[in-house]
Amino acid sequence: MSQPLVAVSTDVKEFENYTWHAAPRQYLEAAISGAGVLPLLVPSFGERLDLDGLLKRVDGVMVTGSKSNVHPSLYGGEASEANGPYDPLRDSTTLPLIRKAIERGVPLLAICRGIQELNVALGGTLATEIQEREGVMDHRAPESDKQDERFAIRQAVTIKPGSCLAGVFGAGDIMINSVHRQAIDRLGPRLQVEAVAEDGTIEAVSVKDARAFAVGVQWHPEYWVKSDGNSLKIFQAFGAAARARAQGRGVLAQAAE
């Protein structure tokens, strides 16, 4: 069977005198080697894109992490220089893409910024600079010039019994990396909590009424997909869902011939 095609979100960046629509290599590598899918970068042009047409052609959607944050105006918050940077073109693309993917039953994996976009897309809110809140641990990356140290697996999260991710990892604690300063505040009504940190921070969610795999994680499984078993497992689960959709679409196409 050919590789399922998976739509991947992009950030809008300015460098080398060009405006780039791009995604970090780690996500693309994890999609190929971990999930066994072919990643297709979706430029962030918002309503100019035919997202319905795109979702007829792909077998999954992966929403990546990013240094930028969802613009607070999208969930009733106030923008500030400290809370930035923002990427409104990405917001205008990913939020409707997430909603349409869920409606169409297209498998969805949302990572870091992606879980925050998922929550906002489904009516939730975000908490900013959570390390400043009483009783909340510092979830930001350790200060280092070395990416392996910044993305080190160092924090435990508890997987909820009976959840979607319990079927992937088993219930109980797993170790993950933590590189975020925002988190889910009010949970979107269509979401359920899949995993929490020891301070109660929501670390993973799933869509309750989804017709396919639809999960968001606050950590970064893409970084260690080649060396950490749990990082690999979530991409394998996403890849299996994408292949199931691809196979189902193939059967429907044959029946229509």
Rank of each mutant, 00 (worst) to 15 (best):
H220Y: 12
G105S: 01
A253L: 13
I174E: 02
S68A: 15
S163M: 09
A240K: 15
V136N: 02
T125S: 15
E29P: 00
A240V: 00
E81T: 13
G250C: 08
P88D: 07
A244R: 14
R181I: 00
A197S: 14
S163N: 10
A166R: 12
Q218T: 11
S206W: 04
V193R: 06
A183K: 02
K226M: 09
L41F: 02
G36N: 08
P4E: 06
P221C: 11
Q26P: 07
Q155C: 00
L95K: 10
R211S: 13
R48H: 13
E203N: 06
V207H: 05
R90F: 01
A141S: 11
G34W: 09
E78Y: 01
W224Q: 11
M137T: 06
L5F: 12
N230C: 09
P72S: 12
H21R: 12
I159A: 07
R249S: 05
A195K: 02
V136F: 12
K233V: 04
L118T: 06
G77R: 06
E132H: 15
D138N: 15
R186H: 09
A256I: 06
R243P: 00
V58A: 00
I98W: 02
P189F: 05
I130G: 04
H139Y: 12
W224R: 13
N177G: 13
A242F: 00
R104W: 03
N17K: 13
P161V: 08
E47I: 00
I184L: 12
G200I: 02
F235K: 04
G60K: 03
M1S: 11
P43S: 13
G123M: 01
G65W: 07
D91H: 09
N230K: 15
A241N: 03
N83Y: 11
P107T: 09
L51T: 07
Y223T: 08
G167C: 04
L187G: 04
K67C: 05
A152P: 00
A110L: 02
S163D: 10
I153A: 01
E47T: 08
A166D: 14
A101N: 09
L118S: 04
L51I: 15
Q147W: 13
A121M: 08
V12P: 12
Q116Y: 10
S73Q: 11
A141E: 11
L232R: 15
L38D: 07
L187H: 05
F169M: 10
F45G: 05
E47C: 01
K160I: 15
A110K: 07
Q192Y: 01
I102P: 08
L41E: 09
R150W: 02
L54C: 07
P107C: 06
D228A: 12
L108D: 07
P107M: 07
T64N: 14
I234N: 08
Q116P: 02
E143V: 10
D228G: 06
A79Y: 08
P161R: 03
G200W: 04
I115H: 09
A82C: 01
R190S: 15
G123E: 05
A241T: 03
G170C: 14
A242S: 11
A110I: 02
L109K: 08
L118R: 09
